[in-house]
């Protein structure tokens, strides 16, 4: 069972924008190879930051509205949120250490 919360256009506002704790959303799609290199890393981070940062992912194929709102035109893209505001956008496949550093800034 994945520790990564799956969000959709319908649940995004409630789960991410109104989240009590900071959040990170991994925007991905089935067609995207590099996304598949990132998802195991995101999965690990979800375990490590459980209860501290909400780690979520959104399939951009089934959900067009949210990616459009954030101007996403490359995937994988990871967006970090705190208090409903975007604090950082990370484009492309980056190693865990880099993501870890960015997540620590949210705490």
């Amino acid at each position: 069972m994945s520790d990564v919360l799956q969000v959709t256009d319908d649940t995004f506002e409630e789960e991410i924008i109104k989240s009590d704790i900071p959040a990170m959303v991994d925007f991905w799609a089935e067609w995207c190879g590099p996304c598949k290199m990132v998802s195991p890393v995101v999965e690990e981070l979800a375990k490590e930051y459980e209860g501290k940062i909400k780690i979520a992912s959104m399939d951009v194929d089934g959900n067009r509205q949210t990616p459009g709102k954030f101007g996403i035109r490359n995937i994988p893209t990871l967006i970090l949120f705190k208090g409903g505001e975007v604090t950082q956008t990370i484009v492309g496949a980056h190693p865990k250490s880099h993501l870890d550093e960015e997540l620590k800034k949210l705490l």
């Binding site: 067609w31 995207c32 190879g33 490359n74 994988p76 484009v91 492309g92």
Partner: peptide, 17 residues
């Protein structure tokens, strides 16, 4: 403009266009 229209992966980002 990386992430805002500049891309190095057509299979990833092609469908946005």
């Amino acid at each position: 403009l990386i992430g805002k229209g500049v891309s190095y992966c057509a299979t990833c980002d092609g469908p946005f266009y």
